[in-house]
Amino acid sequence: MNHDHHIVVLGAGYTGLFSAIRLAHRTRRTDVKITLVNPSSRFVERLRMHQIAAGQELAEHQIPDLLADTGVTFVQGTATAIAPEARQITIDGADVLSYDTLVYALGSSTETGTVPGADTHAFTLNTPEIAGRFAARLREVAASGGTVTVCGGGLTGIEAAAEITESHPGLNVTLISRDEPGAMMGSKARTYLHGALHRLGITLTTGSRVTKVLPDAVELADGRIVRSDVCLWTTGVKVPPLAAAAGIATDDRGLILVDPTLRSVSHPEIHAIGDAAAVRMAWGQIHGTCQSGLPTAQYTADTIARLVRGRTVKPFRFGYFHQPVSLGRRDAVIQFTKADETPRRMCLTGRSAVAYKEMVSGSPLTTYRFSKHMNVTTIISKGGRATRRPAA
């Protein structure tokens, strides 16, 4: 074992925080030192950001409190550069932090730079502060019975549109999507989803992409103009350029290219997790969700604990299990899936789905608390037979 081995975890989102806590437990009888770096001391529950946007008051969780009794050192600051050859990280352009092993967990955010006006005339769910400003603007628009547009018909857009409409029933809410919302679901779940959106009074505008966001409207590629007193942008993903700028091998989107053990193919001392990593299974590439991110964090914490003890590791295996979608506070739909995320026949709707979704949304914090004292698993499916062979 390497004595005084320093592990630095960059990013304290769902995956970074979990990996740090689990690492502390798995290496508690070693000389390993763990440091967690994050720009904010607040832990952001990304699964609940649409609730903040709708104006709901949620509990705040501080990262130092969640790390209590783990021995992990928390550094509040932004990583501005990585020098992989020297194994050093520059924090806030000044302080230098050295590492033996780096866990790269800088997550993604919504991309607003590809459509004109999205960066200046639309809000995102990237931070609680931005979501809070949207909520304040929403209250102003609701007072006059105005119109809200939610751009992006993925699960985030669906949840946001439903939450906004339920919280502000006097608003006119339009969900704009190039494809049919819920297209990835089975027919039963998709029908229920569309029925719920209809019951809420949400207008669906599909079949055309957004080409411009204006101060009071959204312009579509087919020439349609949709009135918009306030716009929420939920489509498009970007990752920080830090890894690519450091010369770490990345794909064309900036995700770190990893081997089957989630280690950088160019710098094996760097482990990438969550939506910072280009992780491939035999059935395809994993996309960034909490469902896939937490298992990568669990696996990486266990892998590093084995490596510092000189032990061998097995390749990462993962399969999707479900697509949970809240439809306000009183309704939801859960589509169960195969490992490659194609839909199974089974789904949950209504009250049982609400309870299921709330359990899913609250599970990370519960996992963190228990992981200080025991090895809690977040891997529901390893993908079965399909992941027993390596990815192409």
Results as ranks from 00 to 15, higher is better:
155 L>D: 00
122 A>K: 12
88 Q>G: 02
62 Q>H: 13
228 S>Y: 05
170 G>A: 15
133 R>G: 13
316 F>M: 09
284 G>D: 06
191 T>Y: 01
6 H>L: 08
254 G>R: 11
255 L>G: 05
126 N>A: 00
274 G>V: 11
215 P>M: 13
277 A>L: 06
323 Q>A: 06
45 E>Q: 15
251 D>F: 03
7 I>K: 00
306 R>A: 12
15 T>H: 02
215 P>K: 15
298 Q>S: 03
145 G>V: 06
152 G>S: 04
240 P>H: 15
79 A>S: 00
166 E>C: 08
272 A>S: 11
117 G>F: 15
59 A>Y: 03
111 E>S: 14
3 H>V: 08
25 H>D: 01
336 F>V: 05
273 I>P: 02
316 F>P: 05
77 G>I: 01
149 T>D: 07
227 R>Q: 15
111 E>T: 08
247 G>K: 12
361 S>T: 03
25 H>M: 01
188 K>E: 10
112 T>K: 14
224 R>Q: 14
258 V>M: 12
72 V>K: 00
47 L>M: 11
144 S>C: 09
116 P>C: 15
277 A>N: 03
6 H>K: 07
66 L>R: 07
295 P>S: 10
106 L>K: 06
49 M>N: 08
104 Y>C: 03
335 Q>K: 04
322 H>N: 11
251 D>P: 07
370 F>W: 15
155 L>A: 00
166 E>Y: 06
144 S>Q: 12
390 P>V: 14
232 L>Y: 00
205 T>M: 14
173 V>T: 12
262 L>A: 02
154 G>W: 03
392 A>K: 13
204 L>D: 08
12 A>D: 01
86 A>W: 08
383 G>P: 00
314 K>E: 15
212 K>S: 10
239 V>E: 03
348 L>M: 06
150 V>Q: 01
215 P>W: 15
197 L>T: 03
371 S>A: 14
378 T>G: 07
209 R>M: 13
53 A>R: 03
20 A>I: 06
295 P>C: 09
375 N>Y: 05
104 Y>S: 04
125 L>F: 08
328 G>A: 02
24 A>Q: 06
